[in-house]
Design a protein around this nucleic acid. Structure first.
Length: 307
RNA sequence: GGCGCUAUAGCCAAGAGGUAAGGCAGGGGCCUGCAAAGCCCCGAUUCCCCGGUUCAAAUCCGGGUGGCGCCU
């Protein structure tokens, strides 16, 4: 992908890979703005655990797609793309350098490539019904149903991946069409982009993660979670499934000890980082490099651009 | 020094004459409106070492080594 004025720079990487700092430095230098691609930083009042840029940073550089939802709301990729798209189009139209930064692979995927998302919104009633059926009759039964109606989609899913089996059936019901028929196949790009994935040796990354979790606790993650809990936000809400919050909630309920809580957060974060990396590998056009290298590449390019 | 117990994967751990459960950590992967979620796959040709008994030993016997406990 060519770096044109109409092109966006995407900086991603696993948690603790240093992407936020790099994006910030870059935005400042280029006088650009940042569009976050993070499924948890969208929630207000969840600051410490999501490693959200602080007030100072947000004063210096405009950050979009942060604090746009309440912790009790159910956000989704579809909503994200809709809103982020408008912002990006706006920025590009008046020539503002646009930097997308975040670690939610699906969000970046949705921004960069065509996704029909089945053309169907959710149907909570139906989902609940199917969920109940899976629980009483077993995952296999539900899977067989999908198999008979949409064998194509069934083939790409595992019977135990109930969530997706349900979604495929949901699409079938609400649109009358098979999910497999609506898939976009090769997923053509929908924007000009330059996509960087920040890398670092696994052991170092894990060390950084472990350290950062300790920092979050010291910075008041427990207190922040207590405040959210006092607001009435419960563990089954999507926002509270976020790593850090989920474990602190268990600690506050007396289910686990503090030491175990910290270790659990660290471990879950490590596992998550691994999953993120797996996702990034399949993003087309991704360039993998360590933060220093990416910084050098981008610095050179922005200099060329301003000439 | 004597006596007792113990030794199985990076860690925890089942096993008790018939050909090495499981969990965790770790690794690989999937994903089209909950994605920090959800889901799938992968570790011991070998049980501390040496010898013996047996058709057959991680399992029984003897010796050695390490660990734990007790005694003097």
């Amino acid at each position: 992908m060519k770096q044109t004025p109409q092109s966006i720079t995407v900086i991603t990487g696993s948690t603790a890979s240093g992407k936020s700092a790099l994006a910030f430095a870059l935005a400042k230098k280029m006088n650009g703005q940042i569009v976050s691609a993070d499924s948890m930083q969208i929630y207000r009042r969840m600051n410490i655990g999501t490693a959200k840029p602080n007030a100072e940073e947000r004063r210096e550089v405009v950050h979009h797609m942060i604090d746009i939802a309440e912790p009790w709301e159910d956000y989704s990729v579809g909503l994200y793309r809709e809103k982020a798209d408008k912002i990006i189009d706006g920025l590009l139209s008046d020539g503002t350098p646009t930097i997308v930064c975040g670690g939610t692979g699906l969000y970046i995927d949705a921004l960069l490539f065509e996704h029909s998302f089945g053309g169907a919104a959710r149907d909570d009633e139906y989902r609940k019904a199917l969920q109940a059926r899976a629980e009483t009759e077993g995952n296999a039964v539900l899977y067989e149903t999908l198999k008979s109606e949409d064998s194509e989609s069934a083939r790409t899913l595992h019977p135990n991946d109930v969530k997706r089996v349900i979604r495929a059936l949901e699409i079938l019901k609400t649109t009358g069409k098979k999910k497999s028929e609506q898939s976009d196949g090769l997923k053509p790009p929908r924007r000009d982009y330059r996509l960087f994935v920040l890398t670092m040796p696994r052991e170092i990354l894990y060390e950084k993660i472990n350290k950062r979790v300790g920092q979050m606790i010291a910075n008041g993650l427990i207190e922040e979670t207590e405040r959210l809990k006092a607001e009435g936000i419960s563990a089954d809400q999507l926002s509270m499934k976020a790593i850090g919050y989920a474990e602190v909630l268990r600690y506050l309920n007396g289910d686990i000890k503090k030491g175990d809580m910290i270790e659990l957060i660290q471990q879950n974060t490590r596992n998550y980082a691994k999953r993120q990396i797996t996702y990034f590998k399949k993003l087309r056009g991704a360039e993998f490099a360590d933060a220093e290298t990416v910084k050098k590449i981008l610095t050179l390019e922005t200099q060329n651009l301003s000439l």
